[in-house]
Computed example of a mutant assay.
Amino acid sequence: MIRYKVYQSKNKASSSYGLWYARAVYDETVGLEKLAEHMANHNTPYSQGCIFGVLRDMVNCIKELVLDGKAVKLDNLAIFSASISTSGAASAKEFSITNCLRNVHLNARATGKLRTATLTSEATKKEVAEYTVNKTGKSDGGDTME
């Protein structure tokens, strides 16, 4: 179930000012260990520890392959690849990746069963509470988006 909160745009500089939108929220972040436990509870002959080890190794291998310039596709999940952001140089001759590299980013493009169209058509939705922002500028406790 996709949980969401409704909020009103307060950005006066935007054409969306005053309009109402929904923002997805989640109540928990599940790490590899909890994912392994969840998977082990699905009638598998593999233990939580075995699954956790495979997942941990998979993460390390995906990182290694992505940093080697490969795209890694996990069917029905995502294609992982790297992209870069750089600052500009006045000419190609003046461009140096050493001086112009800002960041290396990890991209994850959904595939198969996790494609946007599939998720949109299959998701059930539920409004959880009104979206508010406290005096510090952070969302209230019910919205755990990071």
Rank of each mutant, 00 (worst) to 15 (best):
residue 142 G to W: 03
residue 90 A to F: 04
residue 20 W to C: 04
residue 90 A to N: 11
residue 116 T to A: 13
residue 4 Y to R: 02
residue 70 K to S: 09
residue 10 K to S: 03
residue 12 K to Y: 05
residue 73 K to V: 07
residue 85 S to L: 03
residue 116 T to N: 13
residue 113 K to C: 03
residue 49 G to A: 10
residue 47 S to I: 00
residue 54 V to M: 07
residue 99 N to R: 12
residue 118 T to K: 13
residue 135 K to L: 00
residue 36 A to Q: 04
residue 52 F to T: 03
residue 94 E to F: 04
residue 112 G to L: 11
residue 134 N to G: 08
residue 87 S to V: 11
residue 91 S to K: 00
residue 126 K to N: 11
residue 84 I to M: 14
residue 142 G to C: 02
residue 59 V to N: 15
residue 26 Y to S: 05
residue 27 D to K: 14
residue 52 F to E: 04
residue 103 N to V: 14
residue 94 E to A: 06
residue 116 T to F: 14
residue 138 K to S: 07
residue 41 N to L: 00
residue 43 N to I: 13
residue 93 K to W: 06
residue 40 A to M: 01
residue 6 V to R: 13
residue 49 G to P: 04
residue 77 L to C: 07
residue 109 R to A: 14
residue 79 I to N: 09
residue 65 L to P: 11
residue 121 S to D: 05
residue 66 V to H: 12
residue 71 A to Q: 15
residue 15 S to A: 11
residue 102 R to W: 01
residue 58 M to E: 05
residue 133 V to S: 03
residue 110 A to N: 09
residue 11 N to D: 13
residue 131 Y to S: 02
residue 93 K to E: 14
residue 50 C to Q: 15
residue 92 A to T: 08
residue 34 K to D: 14
residue 144 T to F: 08
residue 112 G to S: 13
residue 81 S to V: 10
residue 1 M to G: 10
residue 55 L to M: 01
residue 44 T to D: 07
residue 57 D to L: 06
residue 26 Y to V: 09
residue 94 E to R: 06
residue 11 N to K: 12
residue 122 E to W: 15
residue 137 G to R: 02
residue 72 V to N: 15
residue 5 K to M: 01
residue 60 N to S: 09
residue 138 K to W: 00
residue 134 N to K: 11
residue 100 C to Q: 11
residue 137 G to S: 12
residue 54 V to R: 02
residue 64 E to N: 09
residue 15 S to H: 11
residue 98 T to D: 08
residue 141 G to N: 10
residue 66 V to M: 05
residue 135 K to G: 10
residue 110 A to T: 15
residue 74 L to K: 04
residue 132 T to Y: 15
residue 130 E to P: 11
residue 35 L to K: 12
residue 62 I to K: 04
residue 4 Y to G: 03
residue 29 T to W: 09
residue 102 R to F: 00
residue 91 S to R: 02
residue 88 G to A: 11
residue 68 D to K: 06
residue 96 S to M: 01
residue 101 L to D: 07
residue 13 A to R: 00
residue 40 A to Y: 02
residue 81 S to Y: 11
residue 140 D to V: 10
residue 26 Y to E: 03
residue 100 C to E: 07
residue 109 R to Y: 10
residue 3 R to K: 06
residue 21 Y to I: 06
residue 83 S to P: 08
residue 67 L to W: 12
residue 128 V to N: 12
residue 5 K to L: 03
residue 23 R to D: 05
residue 45 P to E: 08
residue 22 A to V: 06
residue 18 G to M: 03
residue 21 Y to E: 05
residue 6 V to A: 02
residue 98 T to L: 02
residue 101 L to C: 02
residue 77 L to I: 08
residue 131 Y to I: 01
residue 28 E to M: 01
residue 100 C to F: 03
residue 9 S to G: 02
residue 3 R to V: 01
residue 46 Y to H: 09
residue 5 K to F: 09
residue 83 S to T: 15
residue 98 T to G: 12
residue 37 E to C: 02
residue 130 E to V: 10
residue 116 T to I: 12
residue 136 T to K: 12
residue 139 S to M: 08
residue 10 K to I: 12
residue 111 T to W: 07
residue 99 N to I: 02
residue 114 L to A: 13
residue 33 E to N: 08
residue 56 R to M: 09
residue 45 P to C: 10
residue 74 L to V: 10
residue 72 V to L: 14
residue 82 A to T: 07
residue 135 K to I: 09
residue 47 S to A: 14
residue 46 Y to I: 14
residue 19 L to C: 10
